[in-house]
Every structure is written in C-alpha cells, then in structure tokens.
Simulated assay, not measured.
Amino acid sequence: MPQNKKEGLFFTTIVCFSMVMTMSAYNLLLHGQFSLSNLFGGLVPGFIVAFLLDVLVVSSPAKKIAFALPVNKEKKIQLIIAVSSCMVLGMVFFMSMYGVVMQFGFTKNFLSYYIGAFATNLIMALPLQLLVVGPVCRMILRKSRQRSWLKEKI
C-alpha cells in the first residue's frame, strides 16, 4: 500500500491504467468491436475519466467504507481486500455509466443497458483487481520504492 502522496499517485496511475486497458479490451471483445485502433482510441479518454473519478469521487468514500467494515485491520490482506473491493464497486458503478453513455447515449433503454453493463463489468473487474492488477501493481510499487524519485523529501 502507498506510504506517501507520490507513491499514492504512482500507484493510482498504474492501477487505473491497467484496469482501464483491460476492461476496455474486455468490453470491446464482448461487443464484437475489438481492434487495436478501438482499444487505443478509447484508452486516453477512458483513463482520464477513470483517474478523475478515482481521485475525486470514489477513493475517499470507498476507503471510509472499507475501514468501517468489520475486518481485522492488523491483517494487511484483509484491509487490501476490503479497500480494493470497495474501490472496484465504486469504479464499476461510474465507469459502467460512462461506457453506456459513450456507446448508446441517454436512450429510453439506458437503465437496462446500465444494469447489464454493471453486472458484466463487476464479474470481470473484481477478480481482475483482486487476483491480477492489484498484486502486480503492489509488486511494482514495492520495487519502485528502491528508487529515490518516489521518496518524499521531509
């Protein structure tokens, strides 16, 4: 877990980018629209929206909820699972909305499209975050701590 603001920003960036790229590819595959041009064409705007939502909207409430859950805060793995799960729920809530709006706009079928997208995205995003992206990004963070550029000056 990040220990200072620079580490937090670095960790948020790599997790967000990894999740946006993977979930974008997943959704494009589901809709039969996968191509590298479609993937990379939507990657930058999707990343910007996801990053802003993460930092400005989802992160603080998700962490408050996770820390309020009855988990053993002395056990780092339980805390990581709680925070990651709350973050995924919040991000899937908003990014599914973003995806539906970008693909279909606000139509009379918006709610049904959104519910379908939310369920489909949650099924992929939660295990992806808990089993792949989270562990890999935490490993990258640990290895990056050896670099002086992540250490805050006191």
Rank of each mutant, 00 (worst) to 15 (best):
L111N: 07
N121R: 06
V57I: 14
I77T: 14
G105M: 04
Q78L: 11
L43Y: 04
Y26N: 08
S59Q: 15
A25Y: 01
I140Y: 12
L28P: 01
K151C: 06
I81D: 00
L56E: 00
L150C: 02
S59C: 06
K64N: 08
V101L: 15
A119I: 08
L53E: 08
G41M: 08
L56K: 01
K5Q: 05
L56N: 05
F17Y: 09
N4H: 07
V133L: 01
V133F: 05
K64Y: 11
T107D: 03
L28H: 03
G46Q: 02
V15T: 13
M1D: 13
F94A: 14
A25W: 09
N4K: 05
L29A: 12
N4V: 13
L52V: 15
C137I: 12
K6N: 08
L29Q: 03
L131C: 15
T13P: 06
T107V: 10
R145Q: 15
V58I: 15
A82E: 09
Q3M: 10
I81N: 00
K143V: 09
E74V: 00
L53W: 11
E74D: 12
F104A: 01
L30V: 01
K5A: 09
L39P: 05
F34K: 00
V83R: 12
L39I: 05
M95E: 11
F10Y: 12
L9Q: 03
V136K: 06
L89W: 06
S96G: 11
F67H: 12
L131Y: 07
V20N: 05
V15H: 09
K151F: 01
K76L: 12
P45H: 04
Q3C: 06
M97C: 14
L9R: 10
R138Q: 09
N27T: 14
N72Y: 07
S18G: 14
L9H: 02
L128W: 00
F104G: 00
E7V: 07
L29I: 15
F67Y: 15
L130D: 12
Q146L: 03
L69F: 07
L39R: 05
K64T: 11
K153T: 10
M19T: 13
V44D: 00
R142D: 13
L141H: 09
L52S: 10
M102H: 09
G105Y: 13
F93I: 08
G90W: 00
V44W: 11
R147I: 01
F110T: 08
F118C: 01
V83Y: 00
S60Y: 15
Y98K: 03
L56A: 15
G90N: 04
I81G: 00
S59A: 15
K143E: 10
T12C: 09
E152T: 13
V15C: 11
I81P: 02
K108R: 13
F104I: 00
T107C: 05
R138V: 11
C86N: 03
T12S: 15
G32C: 01
V15E: 00
S84A: 15
C137E: 08
D54L: 13
A117S: 14
F34M: 05
N121H: 05
L111K: 12
R145T: 02
M95I: 10
L126Y: 10
C137W: 08
L130V: 06
C86V: 04
R142F: 12
F40C: 03
L130M: 02
L53V: 13
A25F: 07
A50C: 05
F104Y: 04
V57Q: 04
